[in-house]
Design a protein around this nucleic acid. Structure first.
Lengths: 342, 342
DNA sequence: CCCAAAATTCAAAGCGCTTTGGATTTCCTT
DNA sequence: AAGGAAATCCAAAGCGCTTTGAATTTTGGG
């Protein structure tokens, strides 16, 4: 069933039916009713490809998903996607997900936009001097970056959380509690959020006359296993850290296991603060020793970005082009004063 | 830059250029070279919407993602998606993800197909007598179900793991080890995989003259928190279970925590077997007490389903329409003989 | 050197929808 | 009752690509 058939059925022109469906004013109220009625009965659905070709709009937002056999799936990606979904469904948008090996990401983005398949693009997993930003600026397709790059002008639309601030706050608290030996279990070193978190940590330490030793930083994918290994390594140092910052509750899981295994008490022998993306799967308050965290909902970020993207496309509202969200520092039992021995 | 402009630039007709690009035989090798060269220089990309309209093919596979503010994102979804992505990227396919509140899933599927936006559909989160299957069979769009329904003829394309068998094997092992009191921490009760897992467990128990008490079954979303709560509840029964089956390593995480908290030793006081979807984020061998598991890679399932879907669309190969994968039962330290006291 | 067959290339007809520019009716004002 | 504005509705022109049917050029055999 297509427009032509439907209009013949109704004895109307395609023009009128199309207008009736898309809410244009120049159509008789009664006629519109008849059209809507017929649509309900026939189950007619406009062909999106045709619609897209005619309007140039696609009703969808694109994202490229980094993937490869060797790449581990990222819990955080799913959670973020859920947020995008919440908002997208309200406006009948969908996503076009284009998987891509990471090294071809820029090209994949470009292709995705050029294909006319998407009205807007979402960019994540930002790196230093990320080439995707310049590329997107050169096109006229709206886009929003989740995170921010480093080393290039910050004149593009983004939504980021204050990673520097979050880890600064966390490190400062631990320093105030008397801790002297710090460690950081961070995400991949080529991603900007990791870089900022390292910076925030170092800044706080510097203010207290402390430093973060190289062998007390771990960069890796954010999995339980890497968290465990990193912590295990830290604990074997001659002066092991008593204060640990961790970029994800998933990694904290492994870290805590290593701590227990070493026979140490979390919250007294060693303090830990993790960043909490509010993954429903894993809540910091449910840890055996509830975790002190810096918190910011990934899902909320997804919702917000979808909303901004859609607002851009549909021109329905004007939202700020740049947003930097503060994180909450929530103190629970995993942090305590530095053990007196050291 | 579109086809028309490109062909004018080359002094050729659109027809010839189109054919050169799509690998048709009736075009001079030299001409084809010139065309490809020009494409490289101009960066021309065919407009997918137009292509789709003309061919009827979309180059994409659709899936509806259950979502709502109240719904928790599912780790397993992300992992599966990664699998789909691995395979899709090889054939330059992408996904169209249509978020939908669960109660409208059938309608959303129908709309997605009718929109002409997808060449094939992927169905998951199967329920009993799932209406989506009948609906998809009535359309001619290829589809593959991940899982199987219950209570309707099994004459549709699916890929499922042998959930019944997996939990049968697991329960039998525990029974053979002398356990008498069982519990099951399962997924949502309306999903068929949960139903089958319950069935498999009960069957094994029955063969040993045992039963699974109602208050020893927990059905919930598969999160750490629910695992913890369920186990906590079990341990408060007058005769607590000594053998526990668990539908996900994520829930096992919480369950193990509850066990530790109760001062019990996993593997001696209480035995636990979890189903392992091979989530890179959380490996059963890394648990403090490594977990005995039934294993089947979710990501591999995603890859396989994508491959079948694409094979269906492109008619490149003929793959089996129905597949039931056996799971591996891998024994680690979390299982041991029933404690002699009981 | 001529003619049929093979190899290339092209013009034009859609695919299903939106939208422009007009045509036709209806309604109101004077 | 006439004239003009408002309200409705319509025919037709694209959107950018694929594909059919035909035209043109090359090739090969007699």
């Amino acid at each position: 069933m297509n427009l032509k058939q439907l209009s013949q059925l109704l004895g109307l022109s395609q023009t009128t039916v199309s207008r009736a469906l898309n809410g244009y004013p120049e159509v008789n109220a009664e006629t519109r009713q008849r059209v809507l009625e017929a649509v309900r009965e026939t189950g007619y659905r406009p062909n999106r490809a045709a619609q897209r070709l005619a309007t140039g709009r696609a009703g969808s937002i694109g994202l490229v998903m980094p993937t490869a056999d060797s790449i581990e799936s990222d819990v955080h990606f799913g959670e973020f996607l859920a947020g995008l979904g919440d908002e997208a469904v309200k406006h009948d948008f969908h996503f076009v997900i284009n998987p891509s090996p990471p090294e071809e990401e820029t090209a994949t983005c470009r292709r995705l936009v050029a294909s006319g398949n998407v009205d807007a693009l979402f960019l994540a997993y930002m790196r230093e001097k990320d080439p995707r930003i310049a590329m997107m600026k050169s096109l006229k397709t709206p886009f929003v970056v989740h995170g921010r790059s480093i080393g290039i002008p910050t004149d593009y639309p983004y939504l980021d959380i204050d990673n520097t601030g979050a880890f600064y706050d966390a490190a400062r608290l631990l320093a105030q509690l008397g801790h002297r030996h710090f460690a950081l279990i961070n995400g991949p070193d080529y991603l900007t959020f990791s870089i900022r978190r390292t910076k925030g940590t170092m800044r706080a330490l510097a203010e207290h006359g402390l430093t973060l030793r190289d062998d007390c930083i771990s960069n890796s994918q954010m999995t339980d296993e890497h968290g465990f290994r990193a912590m295990e390594r830290f604990l074997q140092l001659e002066t092991p850290p008593t204060a640990v910052l961790c970029s994800s509750t998933v990694m904290a899981l492994g870290a805590v296991r290593a701590i227990n295994q070493a026979g140490l008490k979390l919250g007294s022998d060693i303090s830990l603060i993790a960043h909490d993306d509010v993954l429903p799967m894993l809540k910091p308050e449910n840890f055996m020793v509830p975790l002190t965290t810096t918190r910011s909902s990934l899902r909320a970020a997804g919702q917000r970005i979808a909303r901004r993207l859609i607002a851009d496309i549909l021109q329905i509202e004007t939202l700020p082009q740049q947003e930097l969200w503060k994180t909450d520092l929530i103190v629970r039992a995993s942090t305590g004063p530095a053990p007196s021995g050291k």
